[in-house]
Design a protein around this nucleic acid. Sequence first.
DNA 1: GTCTATATGAAGATAGAC
DNA 2: GTCTATCTTCATATAGAC
Lengths: 219, 219
Amino acid sequence: MIPSAHRRLAATRATLLPEHKPEGSRGVILEVALKLFAERGYAGASIREIAEAVGMKSASLYAHYPSKEHILAELCRIGHEEHRRSIHRALLECGADPRDQVVAYVHAHVAMHAQFPMLAVVANGELHALSSELGAATFELRNQSIQVLEDIVRRGIERGVFQIPHVWLGVAAIGAMGMRVAYWYTPEFELSSEHVAEVYAEFALRVLGAPEPTQRGAG
Amino acid sequence: MIPSAHRRLAATRATLLPEHKPEGSRGVILEVALKLFAERGYAGASIREIAEAVGMKSASLYAHYPSKEHILAELCRIGHEEHRRSIHRALLECGADPRDQVVAYVHAHVAMHAQFPMLAVVANGELHALSSELGAATFELRNQSIQVLEDIVRRGIERGVFQIPHVWLGVAAIGAMGMRVAYWYTPEFELSSEHVAEVYAEFALRVLGAPEPTQRGAG
DNA sequence: GTCTATATGAAGATAGAC
DNA sequence: GTCTATCTTCATATAGAC
């Protein structure tokens, strides 16, 4: 089933873990801004709209954040840190087999995009709106995450586990599949985020020329 | 405006085919708006910036388009029509083998995103900013294009050519791989758009459980 | 920390001269 | 078709009372 075409993304609720969310009004503002930035884009959402949704006057926001851009910067940082944290944890729990590492990476990547779709849409899709000063650290985080997957794939190729015509294209394709999940996934989807993540991990192995034998045969 | 941390997409020039572009000022406005909408988003680019880049005053734009939203609507329509046209043409030139059809579809899909990256970014990524009235026809185009791929994949499964755990997820993943190309491809990339399209077509076959035997073995 | 009030500028769009 | 001039609304952000 295809998600609603008019919305920028299918999710309707902003999900932020307690550890992502500051205490008090600061956290409420961040969550409300996340929803509005995800739905309308950073430039398309105004300070006044955020304030109204929070239940404040716009001037009061400035007691918590020095500017609209600082709110976006915090959301981008949280999103990319959650992404990295999730992937690091998954990689720690798997062995040295490049196949297991790809499964761990892609599972974490996809599950994060399904479980925090608004965070993923904003952190990825609005990062360009940040000034160099506010965005540099987050940009660096993103490049590191891509590099981790590239390293796993190159190691798998050296060991003869993966066969792929072009490493970077494969990494880009695998990353892209997962990023897009944030736009259509909702908790109402017929499969859980875990299940989607498992299927996408298999897709990634297939792209890398190392499909799971059981799933391949079963169809 | 403060300089940004990075570019929203790698391409630096707006590409529009002659048949996409109206005559005279109308065409110039369209091309300039395409570049600015792609780089900053629809909400982030102003009528005044477009006018300045064209070499006009903002009021003069209204002799050619009734509103900013109408400019976006035309760009979205052109983008999705080019996408559909390109896929239809490719499918006419291939046979009845679902493998050939997937290759034709994905090749056209990816080549379009590489050759017209700004058009793809705007037509896909800013469609949500259109009102229902101005966006409805283009939404319909988009849904049709997705349906075409889904039909090809289902037919291939029925014939035992493809094996995939979940059809819709596979279609979504293949579509996503190609859409993302618009964000990173430039003519300076080490591979031509044709070559990238060929590699991605092979990725799609792999996701569908029907890789090219030669490429799979060759790695 | 939240409010009212406001500064300052930019937004989309229109009127009417040429 | 393009201009100057302007309307109206909205934007981000600040000042200062409570």
